[in-house]
Amino acid sequence: MPLVIMCGYPSSGKSDRTVQLESFFQSSTDKKCLVIGESSAGIDKNDVYADSKKEKEARGKLKSAAQRLLSKDDVIILDSLNYIKGFRYELYCAVKSSQTPHCVIFCDTPVNLAETWNSGREEHDRYTKEIFDGLVMRFEAPISKNRWDSPLFSVGPDDDLPCQEIYDALFLRKAPPPNLSTVSQPLSATNFLYELDKRTQEAVTTLINAQKTSIPGDDISIPGAKDKVHLARSINNAELQRIRRQFITYTKLHPIEDISMLANMFVQYINNSIK
């Protein structure tokens, strides 16, 4: 589900905007909308925000709850302060990994107005003065030039929520490309991993044995490879195994159809690594 990250000072109107957006999706689109917030996660805000360890655990709960629901359909709204840019970056990485879009809605309410709204709440739902001031002091406002805060919708207290624009940002925009290291690439053949492991180990064994009778400058033939390893210097087993692990990691992310090329590719990789 695409992720909407609410952001703002305490009592800045985030939950009201969440209700507005949820109502729009339910009445004007065919998308489902799920809201994850502090109350649904069983978080007592005055207790949590008074203790850094509890606050970190609470953020972990919210993040985990959102991650479990991330997909390419429907909408998740994370209704919380989300006031730390590092946490918003973690959420951005999560949506990248899930290959689903996101956006940030910043309730840009002046501090004095947010404080007035907070004072008007029921006592059980009100931030204490100490907690309110501390959160305002630590607040890190979203910036549109940061990729994890973009697209960013800043909404003042008298502004209409741009629901259609938010919908377009979530469903008519491409998701951020995932980091290559987080993508599970399909293997090109059922025995690909077996052959990758077998042929690279065979090459390492051949090189270790060949060095017993060769000298630096010799070219070593490797079974299954057209190219030869140019032994510019001696290579011990530990270094060869390290090069082998690097090659295996890279090749898993870039599988090939013709596994007969693996040995030659590994030879080329070794030559480049020991230059």
Rank of each mutant, 00 (worst) to 15 (best):
161 L>W: 10
161 L>E: 06
161 L>C: 08
162 P>R: 03
162 P>W: 14
162 P>T: 02
163 C>T: 15
163 C>S: 15
163 C>M: 15
163 C>P: 09
163 C>Q: 12
164 Q>D: 12
166 I>V: 06
167 Y>W: 10
168 D>Y: 05
168 D>L: 07
168 D>V: 10
169 A>E: 05
172 L>S: 14
173 R>N: 06
173 R>S: 13
175 A>T: 02
175 A>E: 02
177 P>E: 10
177 P>T: 01
178 P>T: 03
178 P>I: 05
178 P>G: 01
179 N>P: 03
179 N>C: 00
180 L>R: 09
181 S>R: 00
181 S>L: 04
182 T>E: 00
183 V>S: 02
185 Q>R: 10
185 Q>K: 02
186 P>D: 04
186 P>K: 02
187 L>G: 01
188 S>P: 00
189 A>L: 13
189 A>T: 15
190 T>N: 14
191 N>E: 04
193 L>M: 13
193 L>R: 05
194 Y>F: 12
195 E>D: 15
195 E>H: 15
195 E>T: 13
195 E>W: 07
196 L>A: 04
197 D>A: 09
197 D>L: 11
199 R>S: 10
199 R>C: 11
199 R>E: 12
199 R>D: 14
202 E>Q: 15
203 A>T: 08
203 A>E: 04
204 V>D: 00
204 V>L: 02
204 V>N: 02
206 T>W: 00
206 T>C: 12
206 T>S: 05
208 I>S: 04
210 A>T: 01
211 Q>H: 00
212 K>H: 11
212 K>E: 13
212 K>D: 11
213 T>A: 09
213 T>M: 08
214 S>K: 12
217 G>S: 10
217 G>F: 09
218 D>W: 09
219 D>A: 13
219 D>G: 02
219 D>R: 14
220 I>W: 07
220 I>N: 09
221 S>I: 09
222 I>V: 15
222 I>K: 08
223 P>F: 00
224 G>E: 05
224 G>Q: 05
226 K>L: 11
227 D>W: 00
228 K>Y: 00
228 K>E: 04
228 K>Q: 12
229 V>W: 09
230 H>I: 10
230 H>K: 14
231 L>K: 02
233 R>W: 02
233 R>P: 04
234 S>D: 10
235 I>P: 04
235 I>Q: 12
235 I>R: 00
236 N>I: 11
237 N>K: 15
237 N>S: 15
